[in-house]
C-alpha cells in the first residue's frame, strides 16, 4: 500500500541527508521524495510517498519523528489530500503525429513547451492517477525521457499540518 507522509523539518544543512539516510538504513522503499522551503523560511517540508504495510508505515513515522531535526510528521490517507506532481515528458513525434499529440495534451490539460522536427516536450502537472493515464496515452509514440518532481501533497479544505 502507498502511504503519503508529510514532514516538517528544520531548514538547515544536513537534514535531507539524515532523512534519506534513514530510509536506506531501515530498508524503507520510497517511491518519491520532494522537498522545499515553506512559508516559514526556517522550515522545510518533505513529502514522501512510500510503499509498505501498516507496520512499515508506523515505523517510518516513528523513525522520522525520532530525528532531532523533525518538527512534525503526518501520515495521510489518500482521500484527505490533494496531490500534484510536475512532469516534463519528451516524446517522439513525427510531423504527421503532432496534431494527435496536441489534442491529447489539450484534453489532458498539458502544455507543449518545446518542439523539434521529431520530438515534442510536454509539461504536465496533475495528480498521480492522471499522470499515469498520460503516460499510457503517450506510450505508443515513444517516450524518450521523463523528468518528475515527485509528488507533493496538501490537505483538502482549511486544515494545515501545523
Amino acid at each position: 500500500m502507498k502511504h503519503t507522509i508529510s514532514v516538517l523539518v528544520e531548514n538547515h544543512a544536513g537534514v535531507l541527508s539524515r532523512v534519506s539516510g534513514l530510509f536506506s538504513r531501515r530498508g524503507f522503499n520510497i517511491d518519491s521524495l520532494a522537498v522545499g522551503e515553506t512559508n516559514d523560511p526556517t522550515l522545510s517540508r518533505i513529502t514522501i510517498v512510500a510503499d509498505g504495510d501498516e507496520h512499515t508505515a508506523q515505523q517510518l513515522e516513528k523513525q522520522l519523528n525520532k530525528l532531532v531535526d523533525t518538527v512534525k510528521v503526518r501520515t495521510f490517507s489518500p482521500d484527505e489530500l490533494l496531490t500534484r506532481e510536475l512532469q516534463l515528458i519528451k516524446v517522439s513525434a513525427a510531423p504527421n503525429q503532432r496534431s494527435e499529440i496536441m489534442t491529447i495534451c489539450e484534453i489532458m490539460n498539458a502544455k507543449i513547451i518545446d518542439m523539434t522536427t521529431n520530438t515534442l516536450t510536454v509539461e504536465i502537472c496533475d495528480s498521480p492517477v492522471h499522470l499515469h493515464r498520460m503516460h499510457d496515452l503517450l506510450e505508443g509514440y515513444g517516450i524518450k525521457e521523463i523528468v518528475r518532481t515527485g509528488v507533493i501533497a496538501i490537505q483538502k479544505g482549511s486544515a494545515t499540518i501545523k
Binding site: H55, Q58, Q59, K62, Q63, N65, K66
Partner: peptide, 8 residues
Amino acid sequence: IDPAEIGK
C-alpha cells in the same frame, strides 16, 4: 522512553 522501540 523511545516511542520508536515500541512495536518495532
